[in-house]
Amino acid sequence: MGMGNNKYQNRRDFVRKTGKILVAAPLVFIPAMLAKKIDAKGYVWQIDPLKCTTCGQCKTHCVLTPSAVKCTHKYEMCGYCDLCGGYLRQGVRTISTGAENQICPVGAIKRVFIEEPYFEYTIDEKLCDGCAKCVRGCLDFGNGSLYMQIRHDLCANCNECSIARACPSDAVSRVPVDAPYNIKDRIGPL
């Protein structure tokens, strides 16, 4: 019995040691294999405004309510029009700040008279819920100066962005943390 028991123990020890090497190996090999692919800087999610189709899913698919996606304004591209496609609904009778005339469902766009005939449009981010209706209007009838961006003070930076998953045009992708915004400089793809 003593002998047999002893042999049994040895076999167990052998299995245990082999197993230990087998489970320890990946812990060494995986970092070694990934050594060239490691990025120390880190990434955040961002929308490519040139790919965005303004489908409105940014508003509904973000894990946060309201969405971390907001409309932003590239003022240098804006025409400062009186008849603004991003501010006024199509076919309005009067050009005024009346709620019934606004395209924004939450009244987040402020229209301010600058000088004849220019008006400045700014987004109140506290109100904006990321529905992209104004962005579509501006793309269709304006210079495309309004566009959607993920706000990094709000974004939870999920490992897999729910909006990226839902985005039909693959416009949401990881960007380096030191260049976290895709600032728009032209209306469409060249």
């Binding site: 003022y75 600058i114 003070d153």
Partner: peptide, 17 residues
Amino acid sequence: PEFETDYTYPEYQLPAA
């Protein structure tokens, strides 16, 4: 627009990560 008043473009609202 070419502004005649001394209008300057507002800053972008792009908070840092």
